[in-house]
Write a protein that binds this DNA or RNA. Structure first.
Lengths: 195, 195
DNA sequence: TTATAATATGACGGGGTGGTCACACGCAGT
DNA sequence: ACTGCGTGTGACCACCCCGTCATATTATAA
């Protein structure tokens, strides 16, 4: 958590720092991102940074939290009763939507998922937990085969959704098509068919 | 390609340099790997490195080529008539086998797949081409649904196989189980069932 | 107004990296 | 034995990074 000195700052300055963090973390992976760059982009002295934040992890977590809030606002609340498939498609569409409104945010996601520092791995594990629960519930509901490994499912999709974003670049239609294909394949692979 | 001076070196020295490269590239991503480290590990002077190689890409490509040869020897020639599924399972088992005999090699693969420098992206595209052809052929054979996007299939698996290796770490049984689950899901998702 | 506490600042030390270059070495041919 | 050329060598330059710290500045309280 940022130090109290940071929260005492003017909204304008806080925003400048947040924007600088977004700028840096949407360009380079967490492990490659540089505090010096953030400081430069934000137009604050090096010393001040350490007055506000403990280290890179600190500002990263702060940024991620704010970004998550923004994203939730864009995507809208998700329906807890919806099936896993509906959830995933919503998430995929959400990624597109966010990609349109805040391309930097999707880039942050893409770069996060291909970082393998211990810090980031923990973050991802936590963020996947929610989806794993939905899959488990859908198994009980008879929508998904019992023998399916939920962790594998979510990881397959998760990695693909972001990784593909890096490949597709700006080509949104292509991206959407690829993600839909992937989700379709996995859906076909794990669903219980009721013909 | 390394310069002629490199190939004139004694086998022992060439091996020392190769080993140093493997050591470095199995620890850090291509974009993070350091020539200084390779030089230190190999016990050769900085100047000599540039006498042998043009830059990091140069030694990387040289290393990848040698590693590929080694891997092919371990896995054995692949049967061109085998179905895509058989190929993929062979590849998965191959990854395990290589992981046992040359854990560094599998780490290189894992780190490669999560690098996103343009240089590495090109390398991956080239390496996936072969599998895409097999999928296309199996579509004609009536084994795989025509509407499936081959690129998506191979990317799903490719990314997962290596990414999971990073997560599972040394736990081979876990890794094997996860990969099998993933392949099973995708197989179920793209195959034409002939009941 | 003055004293005290909080915050701002940027130069600096210590560390790492890539690539070069002047010089040392040793071997081949005369 | 001497010359010349390919090769070996590591100090060096320019660049980047992190985190600190002594000092300057501002805000607050007395």
């Amino acid at each position: 958590m940022p130090k109290s000195t940071f929260f005492n700052l003017s909204e304008e300055k806080k925003k400048r720092i947040f924007d600088a963090a977004v700028q840096e973390f949407s360009t380079r992976r967490f492990s490659e991102a540089s505090i010096s760059q953030i400081v430069k982009n934000a137009g604050i002295p090096k010393g001040s940074f350490y007055q506000y934040f403990a280290d890179k992890e600190d500002i990263y977590l702060y940024m991620v939290e704010k970004v998550s809030q923004d994203i939730h606002e864009i995507i809208g609340a998700f329906n807890p009763d919806a099936s896993f498939f509906e959830n995933i498609m919503q998430r995929a569409e959400g990624t597109i939507k966010v990609g349109k409104m805040r391309p930097e945010y999707t880039k942050i996601g893409a770069l996060t998922v291909i970082d393998n520092s211990e810090f980031i791995l923990q973050l991802l594990r936590a963020s996947n937990k929610k989806y794993i629960e939905i899959i488990e519930r859908d198994k009980q509901r008879g929508l998904i085969k019992m023998e399916i490994d939920s962790e594998v499912v979510i990881k397959l999709i998760y990695i693909f959704v972001f990784n593909e974003y890096l490949y597709s670049g700006f080509d949104e239609t292509r991206y959407l098509k690829k993600v839909e294909s992937a989700v379709q394949i996995i859906k076909e692979g794990i669903a219980i068919h009721q013909d």
